[in-house]
Design a protein around this nucleic acid. Structure first.
Length: 535
RNA sequence: GUCCCUGUAGCUCAGUUGGAUAGAGUACUACCCUCCGAAGGUAGGGGUCACAAGUUCAAUUCUUGUCAGGGACACCA
């Protein structure tokens, strides 16, 4: 309907010899201002050098359409449209026909998008910070797929480097401890419970036969076990990746020194204090950074440059990385390397999410895998369920700082808006158990009151919301929307009795609530929430 | 010191990329189940949109500055 109105305005403007201006149509907050409204006359005052009210009247005089019931001009120059509601009933039919596809579109046109998220180091199990990034990344992927983007969900596994050495040492130390021997815990060691569990498992299976094994054994064992745990938790959280890329594999595939050489040839490196530096301050960064350390080992940046080079080589139209804000200083370095190697840095978009702070007994606790202080994803799922967890973490924008208190979350989990939405779904399921019809009527004769239009308009809005969420990459628009939809439905439910003696009216109302239920389901699916038939 | 994010009702947060009278939840108050699920609905109070300038017909929204909170500034990853 918006498109139709924009088109009508465009044609009216052509008659007035005006073109090349962005026409916007929006839905006013209050009903008296029409179903739709445009501010075009206000925007044209300068260009036409005329009073906005006169311009608005002139535009209105040039519009004639069966879709429009009435046009009102309101000060200072808004054009308010009151439209015929036939399109809402057409849309109702579409929902019932398209079912799970309702709301989908082709705005993506098979554009290739890579979304890399969570990518937690395998040095511990996932915690609530990962739960937020996961909820965001996976929901965005679902939304983009729904709009026919060709989406790859990717996890980068940091299975090389110092942190893995520390992990191996930590496990070895715990294992020795279990065997009654002593092996020093590294200074940067990991103290999580999962490390102790692994040591116990090893001891129970092999007793003290592994004491002679080298560090590689412990490194590989710990990495393997932790990765299994990570992906098991993610699967339970309803996240399934398409691609896993490991740092070790990148190191095998690319000659990292050759990549540094390429940077050198372009004049982007230099030597200082025995180290090789990347001149990223000449590109996006404000300081330079080290590539090869004085001891000749490589910094973390180098394999990551190779990893992103690899992503570019795979031919995506766009790549999205989701990092915690604690990595924000890193972005300029990374983008500099991309540009230095001749790729378009604009294709990579880094989303920074504000870290989730853990609250315990009323004060902030620093979460850390090293100290083992955290609330794990698994705990969260077990305590509040996947639906509540995913809804909770996706409902706020990435820029919002969140404080998380597990005890509070447990006690208040019933207040989670997800239950309000699921309740609407279950209420409808309950009605359909009483009465249900499959046949979609050719036309609707009884659906013509204000309450019904409110519901139908909300259902219609879904298509716009999905597109907007995809284009702006904001999954929380879906949670906002589905909450509103549930609200409109609960309202309708308390005002209108659905099952009555009037057979025709009942049939049509059943179609209406089925459409609502379908729309709730489709919306929730985009954020990884599965509504229950019964609560 | 430099950079990023945030500041909206007592609390938790939205705010359609600059529009008309700034909205929800929660908490508080008062109503509504003889009837499809009360995990629901209706009504009420509660606001200097941190502050100050600027741009504009129009600023919670954009720009600059100030104040406050969070985070980042490694030859760690």
């Amino acid at each position: 309907m918006k498109e139709i109105l924009i088109d009508l305005i465009k044609k009216a403007l052509e008659k007035m010899n005006v073109s090349n201006i962005l026409i916007e149509v929006e839905q006013p907050k209050i009903k008296e201002n029409g179903d739709y409204s445009s501010n075009i006359a206000l925007k044209l005052t300068k260009i036409l050098n005329k009073n906005p009210m006169d311009i608005a009247n002139e535009i209105a005089a040039n519009i004639d359409s069966n879709d429009i019931k009435k046009i009102e001009i309101k000060s200072p120059g808004f054009i308010n449209f009151f439209v015929n509601k036939g399109y809402l009933l057409e849309n109702l039919k579409n929902v019932l026909i398209e079912k799970d596809k309702y709301g989908s579109s082709n705005i993506g046109n098979r554009k290739k998008i890579n979304i890399e998220f969570v990518s937690a180091n395998p040095t511990g199990i996932l915690h609530i910070g990962n739960a937020r990034g996961g909820a965001y990344g996976d929901s965005l992927a679902r939304i983009l797929r729904f709009c026919n983007y060709d989406v790859t969900e990717e996890y980068y596994i940091n299975d090389a480097g110092n942190q893995i050495v520390n992990l191996g040492e930590s496990l070895k130390s715990r294992y020795y401890e279990k065997c009654g021997k002593n092996y020093p815990m590294p200074e940067e060691g990991y103290h999580g419970k999962e490390i102790i569990d692994m040591a116990n498992d090893l001891y129970n299976e092999y007793q003290d036969k592994l004491l002679e094994n080298n560090l590689d054994y412990f490194k590989e064992y710990a990495t393997k076990v932790l990765l299994e745990k990570i992906f098991k938790d993610l699967k339970e959280y309803r996240i399934n990746y398409d691609v896993y890329t490991s740092e070790l594999a990148i190191k095998n595939k690319y000659n990292l020194y050759e990549i540094i050489e390429r940077l050198t040839k372009k004049g982007y490196t230099y030597e200082r204090d025995g180290a090789i530096w990347f001149k990223c301050s000449e590109i996006f960064d404000n300081t330079d950074h080290v590539l090869i350390k004085e001891d000749k080992t490589l910094t973390y940046l180098v394999p990551d440059i190779a990893y992103h080079l690899d992503k570019y080589n795979r031919g995506f139209d766009k790549m999205i990385d989701i990092f915690g804000t604690d990595h924000h200083g890193y972005v300029a370095r990374l983008k500099s390397s991309i540009k230095a190697l001749g790729n378009d840095p604009e294709k990579l978009e880094v989303k920074l999410l504000q870290l989730v702070r853990l609250i315990e007994d009323g004060s902030v606790v620093k979460m850390s895998k090293r100290t083992g202080k955290s609330v794990t994803l698994k705990e969260l799922i077990d305590e509040v369920g996947v639906n509540a967890a995913r809804y909770y973490f996706v409902k706020s924008s990435l820029d919002t700082q969140m404080d998380f208190d597990l005890n509070l979350a447990k006690s208040k989990s019933n207040e989670n808006p997800v239950y309000y939405v699921c309740y609407a779904y279950a209420r409808i399921a309950s009605i359909l158990k009483e009465v249900n019809y499959d046949e979609i009527p050719q036309k609707f004769d009884t659906l013509n009151d204000e309450d019904t239009y409110n519901v139908l308009e909300k259902v219609y809005e879904f298509k716009e919301v999905v597109k907007s969420a995809a284009q702006r990459e904001l999954p929380h628009l879906i949670t906002n929307y589905v909450y509103d939809l549930a609200n409109v439905f609960h309202n309708y439910y308390s005002n209108v009795r659905i099952i009555t003696d009037d057979l025709q009216a009942t049939k049509e109302k059943i179609m209406l609530v089925k459409a609502v239920q379908q729309t709730i389901k489709n919306a929730l699916n985009l954020i990884g929430v599965i509504p229950p038939e019964k609560m």
